[in-house]
Design a protein around this nucleic acid. Structure first.
Lengths: 196, 196
DNA sequence: ATATTATGTAAGTATACACCTACACAATAC
DNA sequence: GTATTGTGTAGGTGTATACTTACATAATAT
């Protein structure tokens, strides 16, 4: 036998590059030629690492989740008196959309007829939801609170809020500071039930 | 001179068909051949009505707004004691995503690098926002209310809520009744500031 | 009637792009 | 060394598809 296979490692190195390409160009304009070039490879070599373009895209969806979740986990640990949920809201209000990776969801949603992409998106949203629902519950456990919609529905609404922050950013519908206020103010309002 | 030009009328007749095609197939799979077939025409004839595929898509974005706004206007007039905002929320909770036309936004968002499509989307969201912000203010004027985020930000959040309803529907993340509760409960919570 | 413009039908073109083949060279195991 | 497998380079192929051209026919104005 000869020469160890480093495909796994290379996939890991290249996925961020690919993901960024899909985010920047959208699915169609991210041609395999463009992807290869940005990776400093030939198309050929990409096809040795993934069976087809769709697989590259699926990897990008996973990466989008991991990228975001890594930041959130980091925020969980930096205790500053506020609840983790509040810290995440503040951070997202300030930085949402900065990476541009959210555009991968736009591309994915446009391909919802493809069962594999559909399922990958489904799982991604489900993971975000699980994460957030935990934070909502933890946040509410700390406080006296009023009536508010249940945690699961609230968590979806928070995701919708983030999505809207992305869109208002993408389409320049709101300036940076207003976006920050939107995510933070409406977000805490959703968490707390009106009083904050 | 001879034979009156009925292009305007035909565009109006065909736009719903085209819009539905884009919604069903997404931008890429909605080939000009497919669009023509669904219109009962040849590609050729489509190109006599619109200069290119993008123009057909832009018309579909306009149609999406008109289609939705027409329903909302209808709901405004049917007074039943509740505020119009509440009526719209109830209706959207029940029917959101039913037409499938929202998928046009998915397609559009994936093309946000194209300045024309970007601008059309921008205007569409702006129009929705104007509409909703009016309803929010009117709703709040009727009531004693608590502290809540300002109407403009709330209106964006409501749009995000609708977007999320679409996505949870599209990806089968929530069953119909839960989606209805989400839009209605979280929606009124956003409007009222917690007490309802 | 006839000139003029709209509408229908059929075929074609040019290009972009996902994906493949073929082969040379390099590295590792034995 | 040498057999084996990974990596790099160059080019090709087949197809899908946005958009066009050419021409026949139908409707209306004068």
């Amino acid at each position: 036998m000869a020469r160890p296979n480093q495909s796994d490692q290379r996939r890991e190195e290249l996925t961020p590059v690919i993901a960024r390409s899909f985010a920047e160009l959208g699915y169609r304009r991210a041609t395999t030629a463009a992807l290869a070039q940005r990776c400093g490879l030939r198309e050929n070599q990409l096809y040795r690492l993934w069976p087809n373009k769709k697989a590259m895209f699926l990897a990008s969806i996973d990466y989008l989740y991991e990228f975001t979740a890594a930041k959130w986990r980091e925020l969980l640990s930096s205790d500053d008196g506020r609840t983790p949920a509040e810290r995440i809201l503040t951070w997202e209000g300030e930085h949402r959309g900065e990476s541009g990776l959210h555009r991968i969801t736009f591309a994915g949603l446009n391909e919802t007829d493809d069962p594999d992409i559909r399922e990958a998106l489904r799982q991604m949203y489900q993971k975000f939801h699980s994460f957030i629902i935990g934070q909502v519950q933890e946040h509410r456990a700390d406080k006296d609170h009023n009536e508010h919609p249940d945690a699961a529905l609230t968590a979806w609404a928070v995701i919708g809020l983030g999505m809207m922050a992305n869109i208002t950013h993408e389409l320049k519908l709101l300036p940076h500071d207003m976006r920050g206020r939107m995510v933070h103010d409406v977000g805490t309002h959703l968490l707390d039930g009106g009083q904050n």
